[in-house]
């Protein structure tokens, strides 16, 4: 296949370029995608668990879903989608050699992430206040399928929120590296990879939202 051809020549042009940190954005991007594959399958396994129990406990899952607030979920979806837009625009701005604008858009992305997490925290706190958390006496009295539903809800949205949380310092760091010039229109792959990660976080939420909030 052709993809190995051109850049390998470039890399070997400078002696031991790979060892000296030779810049190959395609390699970095490919590595990032492969890492994202592992993330997809990490969540993918949980989606299989979800599917199996939805199949077995359809009615109980609908009951559990009715306890979740659709407006809250929808607002959070819109926030994450918007953060994905600002992320994509930040990369576009950098490529057009407008680093200040790129940094502003990155801060907007972080702002969206913060808003998402705050809303999520209030949502979880509300559930806890109503006695809906793993091992709670109230939840244990509900139908068995609902226990599993909320077990999955907390596991999956928790793992997702963790990924949002990890994304924040990564994006802030990218912003810092734009200011220091380490990320430039010619060397933008760090930012692009941060973007790929962020879009994946968004993508997972795109599935989480209907599966948990919209099946009642």
């Amino acid at each position: 296949m052709a993809d190995g051809g051109t850049t390998s020549t470039d890399l070997h042009g400078a002696a031991g370029a790979a060892h000296a940190g030779g810049y190959d954005p395609m390699a970095a991007k490919m590595g990032m995608w492969l890492f994202l594959f592992t993330e997809v399958l990490l969540f993918g396994a949980l989606f299989i668990v979800y599917g199996v129990y939805l199949h077995g406990f359809t009615w109980q899952f609908q009951q559990g879903s009715a306890r979740l607030s659709i407006p809250v979920g929808a607002v959070n979806t819109a926030i994450l989608l918007t953060s994905s837009l600002t992320m994509a625009l930040a990369i576009a701005a950098l490529q057009r050699a407008r680093p200040a604008r790129a940094r502003r858009l990155l801060f907007a992305t972080v702002g969206c992430a913060g808003a998402f997490l705050v809303i999520k925290a209030f949502e979880w706190a509300g559930k806890f206040a109503h006695g809906v958390y793993p091992g709670a006496a109230f939840l244990l009295e509900q139908s068995k399928g609902e226990i599993v539903f909320f077990g999955l809800y907390f596991t999956m949205t928790g793992l997702h929120a963790l990924h949002v949380l990890v994304g924040v310092p990564v994006i802030l760091w990218a912003g810092r590296r734009i200011r220091s010039g380490a990320i430039s229109p010619e060397h933008s792959v760090f930012l692009e990879n941060a973007g790929l990660y962020w879009h994946l976080v968004d993508l997972i939420w795109i599935y989480l939202f209907p599966l948990f909030y919209l099946i009642s």
């Binding site: 470039d10 042009g13 810049y23 190959d24 954005p25 576009a92 490529q95 010619e186 060397h187 792959v189």
Partner: peptide, 13 residues
């Protein structure tokens, strides 16, 4: 070493 950084064209905003 000077491979094109953005692999071709820019996507309009």
């Amino acid at each position: 070493m000077n491979a094109p950084a953005q692999e071709g064209h820019l996507v309009p905003c």
